[in-house]
Structures are given as structure tokens and as C-alpha cells.
Write a protein that binds this DNA or RNA. Structure first.
Lengths: 221, 221
DNA sequence: ATAGACCTGCACAGAACCTTCACGAGTCGC
DNA sequence: GCGACTCGTGAAGGTTCTGTGCAGGTCTAT
């Protein structure tokens, strides 16, 4: 967490720690680069405006050292700013003021992306019956025919496919896909499940009344 | 488990212990903080309204000491309340009255987030004679044929199957399945037992007159 | 700007489910 | 056997949950 404003730095740090993350704090450009080398984080949260050298410069340097997901925090909603950031390797942007849960969501999303990439090294594609999911390419196939899934649908399927046959609650799914727990009362998950069913076959997603959904694990009982 | 209402505290504690977790109880703010320091739990279940200081304050203090996942329990479904909670480091929220299985699911989800190996607690595929119960998939089979059970029936069977052959009182069962002990005088448990019997075979649930029910433990006659 | 793809969440209807009651049958102690 | 208590049963009634269509809203690319 790189941010020169103590209040924001601490608030974000606290929140992330509360969510189970291990957080190291830095307050300026040089400090950030040093701590990056020292602690080898999985993700960097980077304010654009910093003493020493600015966020873009920090981003460039740490990316040169080792590829790592970077989430930029910017005060103004400046298009040019964002383009520069993306140019030097930032993966996502957040404009102040932001909601904490938004930040946590994006952090979770970025880390998830990395996690999945890491899993691919050992298991390139998940298969459940005649349903095949290529996480790296983000493509899904039913009986060797590709089905086009939207990003959310794909994430949803990925979650379900991680534990074929097991029931996941809507809140489980929401937390996994959206990065924060809290969609109770809405029908958002249902809507996406419906869309997913329409594309991969309604039978493949089992509804467990009062609990949630599960991916039908083919023959295995 | 921090909760000043003895009935709820005990019910939750029992349920979690039944699921294989190790639970320490506290009844007020100061006690919670003290026991947190003394026992170093992996997760904290926290009622919002507490004697001493409230749940948010407790959350703040324990988060300051050591980052830990916190699941808040709140009486009212108040958005502001939830936001405050998230601000001080709560990871998830549950509004009373809640179902026990819901609570267990969330506890499992939070622990999984911290330690993906901690799934042992919810991973049992029980077998009693030719009756097989897959808790994760929430499916039951009799002689390899699946039987569809409603949520309550399934939970009931799960309780009985946890101690095959042992007699459980209606109060026991009710407390386990419904999450609070208060069904004395009604025939609710009986009704669900009846439904369960109709589906898995009447012989499999033994009535112990004046006491309760027991799952017939297969071979042992 | 404009069109298209996508996400979100509401309102409604229908399905699934839970609870309770009343009454008859069963069980126990004596 | 007899009374007192406990269980089994069927159905009614209310509650909760899910499927679905649809209307904004956001984002992307043209």
C-alpha cells in the first residue's frame, strides 16, 4: 500500500488486513520501490501522486524488477492519467473518493486473476463431464462446441466448476465473483445463473432449494 | 463466539462444535477482547449489541491486535450498521434470525478464504449402511439411488447421521437444525421425520418412545 | 454521438416448502 | 385391562424461495 496521506493509507491497510490480507505500507516513491524488493508482495496498491517520484514511475520500476498486479489510486478522473498508468503496467484504476468495498473487490479480483493463472500451470483446463473450461483463454466448451460467455457468466462457471457437484450459496458465489460479501436480497446471482443455464444447458446447474446452486458433476454420484 | 444472549450463544457454539470446530465463548465486549488474546482464534463471531462495549468496538480492538476474519451478527438489517462494520474490519454480516446452516456456511467460507486447507470441517460424506450422505453436494442416496430431500429433511438426516444409532431428543434436533431451542410442544420435528421416513424408508428412523429418534445404524441389529 | 453488449436489480407468478392442528393409534406403568 | 401420555398421520394455510421478463444503467467500440 503506497500512499503519502496517512489517514487513507492506514484506513486502506486496516481494511485489507481485516479481510485477511497481509499488508506492507510505504509512503513515498523510493520507499515503495525498496519495500517492494524487500517484501515481494503479490499486489501493489499505488497512489499516483507521491513524494519522491510519482506512481507511474514507481510502477515502471517495480514492473521492471518483477511482473506484479498493480492497482492505481488517482485523485482525479483523468483520462490521460489513466492511459499513462496502463502504459506503464497498471492493471486497474480506482478514482478517489472510492468506497472501501470497491477497493477490496478490485484487490480480490486482481489476486484471483493471479491465483487462477498460477493454477493453470498445473491444470490448464477444467473438465466436468463434457463441459470444458479453459481458464487461461477464458473459453468454455460444451461437447467440443464453444459457447460464448460474458465475463460474469464465465467467472460464475469457474466458481461452480472449482467444486463440481458441491453446493455454493448465492453469497458464496457473490463473494467469489464480485469480491465482497453483500448481495443478500438481490437476484443478481440468479440472473446470471439463468443466463448461464441458457448457454450451457439448464440441467448442468442444479438448484438446491434454500441453499444455492451446484454444477452437476456428470455421472459421479 | 461473542454473544450476550445465552441461548443463542450456546446454540451456535454447539452447532459449530458439531461441525468439528473448536469454539471459545464470550459474553461481553471486555471478555471477548480478553479471550481473543488468550486463545488466538482463527475467526471471530461477533454480536453487534453487547454489554461493555459493542461489537464494532470489539472488532476494532481485536483487529488492532491481530488481523482475523470477523463475522458480525446483527439484529436489524441496517445498511449503515453494516457499513460501520465493514469500516472497522468485519468481513461478513449475518442478520438475525439466521439459519444455522447459513452461519456454518459463512464460517466455512471465511475460513476457506484464509486457509484453503481448512475445508476438512465441512467435507464429510457420511455412510450409514446403504445410506450415503454427501453433505457438500447436499445429496442423499439409498442403495445408490438418489432421493430428493428438502432442506430441513436433509439437515435432520445429517444430524441423525452424525451419531448413527444414538437417540436424539426432539429438542436436540430442533436446536441443531433450526438454530434455536424452542420447539417444545409442537409437532414440527415429527412432521419432518415422517417426511424423511417416507423418502428413505420408515425402518431407518427408529422411534424411542418418550425420548426421541435415532438413525438405525445399518448392520447392528 | 450512437449502437451494442453487458450488468444489475425489481416485481410478479408460481413452485417448493414449513408449520400447525386435530384426531386416532400406539405405548407405558400399574 | 385402564388411564395417561406419546406418536403417526393427513391436510390446510401461510411463508419463503426460485424462475423470469424487463427496464434502467454502465461500459466499449465504432
Amino acid at each position: 500500500m503506497v500512499e503519502d496521506e496517512p489517514v487513507i493509507n492506514q484506513a486502506v491497510t486496516d481494511r485489507l488486513r481485516g479481510s485477511g490480507y497481509d499488508v506492507v505500507q510505504a509512503w513515498d516513491g523510493p520507499g515503495a520501490v525498496a519495500k517492494f524488493a524487500a517484501t515481494a508482495p503479490d499486489l501493489v496498491l499505488l497512489d499516483v501522486m507521491l513524494p519522491g517520484y510519482d506512481g507511474h514511475e514507481v510502477c515502471r520500476r517495480i514492473q521492471a524488477e518483477r511482473p506484479v498486479p498493480v492497482l492505481m489510486l488517482t485523485a482525479r478522473d483523468d483520462e490521460a492519467d489513466i492511459l499513462v498508468g496502463l502504459g506503464v503496467g497498471a492493471d486497474d484504476y480506482l478514482t478517489k473518493p472510492f468506497r472501501m468495498r470497491e477497493l477490496v473487490a478490485r484487490v480480490a479480483a486482481l489476486l484471483r486473476r493471479v491465483d487462477r493463472a498460477a493454477e493453470l500451470a498445473t491444470r490448464p483446463a477444467t473438465e466436468v463431464g463434457d463441459l470444458r473450461i479453459d481458464a487461461a483463454a477464458r473459453r468454455a466448451f460444451v461437447a467440443d462446441a464453444e459457447v460464448h460467455l460474458t465475463p460474469t457468466e464465465f467467472d460464475l462457471l469457474l466458481c461452480l466448476a472449482a467444486k463440481p457437484g458441491d453446493v455454493l450459496t448465492r453469497e458464496n458465489l457473490y463473494a467469489e465473483v464480485w469480491g465482497w460479501p453483500g448481495a443478500s436480497g438481490t437476484r443478481t446471482v440468479d440472473s446470471h445463473v439463468k443466463a448461464l443455464r441458457a448457454k450451457i444447458g439448464a440441467d448442468r446447474v442444479r438448484t438446491v432449494h434454500g441453499v444455492g446452486y451446484a454444477l452437476e458433476s456428470g455421472s459421479v454420484a
